[in-house]
Nucleic acid binder design. Sequence first.
DNA 1: CCTACCGATCGGTAGG
DNA 2: CCTACCGATCGGTAGG
Lengths: 224, 224
Amino acid sequence: MVTSAAPVSGLPPARRGRPRKSVEQRDESERRADLVRGAARLFRTQGYAATSTRDIAQAAGMQSGSPFYYFESKSALLEAVMQGGMAEAARRQAAALRALGPRPGAQARLRVLIRQHFEVLVGPDSDFIPVMLYEWRSLTPEQRQRIGTQKDAYEAVWMPVLGSLRRAGVLKARPEVARLFIFGALNWSAQWFKPDGALSLDALTEQAMRLFVRETPQRAQKPT
Amino acid sequence: MVTSAAPVSGLPPARRGRPRKSVEQRDESERRADLVRGAARLFRTQGYAATSTRDIAQAAGMQSGSPFYYFESKSALLEAVMQGGMAEAARRQAAALRALGPRPGAQARLRVLIRQHFEVLVGPDSDFIPVMLYEWRSLTPEQRQRIGTQKDAYEAVWMPVLGSLRRAGVLKARPEVARLFIFGALNWSAQWFKPDGALSLDALTEQAMRLFVRETPQRAQKPT
DNA sequence: CCTACCGATCGGTAGG
DNA sequence: CCTACCGATCGGTAGG
């Protein structure tokens, strides 16, 4: 149990924003973050079951028993990887949509969602979400429910966009099924994408848009 | 090493077709098949690393050491699962295309390829290919190369179909990228498809076709 | 195929 | 955080 380090003597002066963390607390939470980062990488490359807590300790420069000072079990570390990854993904998703400015079109919103999703799948520091995608079965039922809530919220953002495209006639599949297919298509890129390959994330986004979405039908069509 | 049981005494009379297998050989290859089938199921549901050879032995009704009479290692069992799955998938893919009859259109061919792929992903007896898709990293480099050859051949069948659709103007992404996205979309269904759910494989195939392929452009277009 | 077994490794903990 | 350790489990094998 981590207890919060409230100051013992008197009340602190009123302060804006989050309370300052003590040095020990910052160090401790950074060592925690080191463990989560290292675990994410190992879980992604070797799989959860094939990664030992000793591997994780070594990656963080610790002795074999030390990860258990920060996490009560290997399983809790897995959940921390996924929970952190989803929180970050949701944050970036919201920021990307916000950056679109007022009244963006549905196509622009979908493009941004796709582009941002590629980013968390195969961009820099992209171990967390793939671990969530490919180690779901390694979670306990309780963990699955907790992470599932975050995952559902992330996916729900796509639905109004897909519904709008459907009504505009440029998406021909049912939105719920389209969402599953589109997520599959994108998620799979974690398996084959090579950052130093010929395809940039922009190019990939463009190809995905062309595959899934039809051009907006022209009002006035020039005769051939 | 399994030695082939050639008859010791004299030459057998000339026979058509494959040589008869002795009873022992049939029994032995069926026990082998039992192990592969059980391993496929366990690898799919729990993952390779999280499945013990004792689990596999038990599923086949054997004692803990007995799988090693049939397979030299746990790893060889994994390869057998994937190799058998790919061989069967390729056989069914070829049969499905053959059943289309002479000069089928590209759309008809794609539909059949998608439908057949769904079948091996989520249809009955569908543990083998998902294991291949999700346990690739558990293979040794040598195994990866061997299974990779089968996988490449299976995927190559899709390329002329996608190329043809592209030339017809009903597929707007580059065929090689489209293949990756489409495989991803379909493969992902292994994660969410429920056989007793609302969606049949036919309905799913239809939705996939609508998502990926545009209607054939009309020659004579009625004015709006 | 079974029995009996081996050496290695694993997640986790007590005590400091 | 480290040291030292435990019980359980694992892949695999010898000998029949």
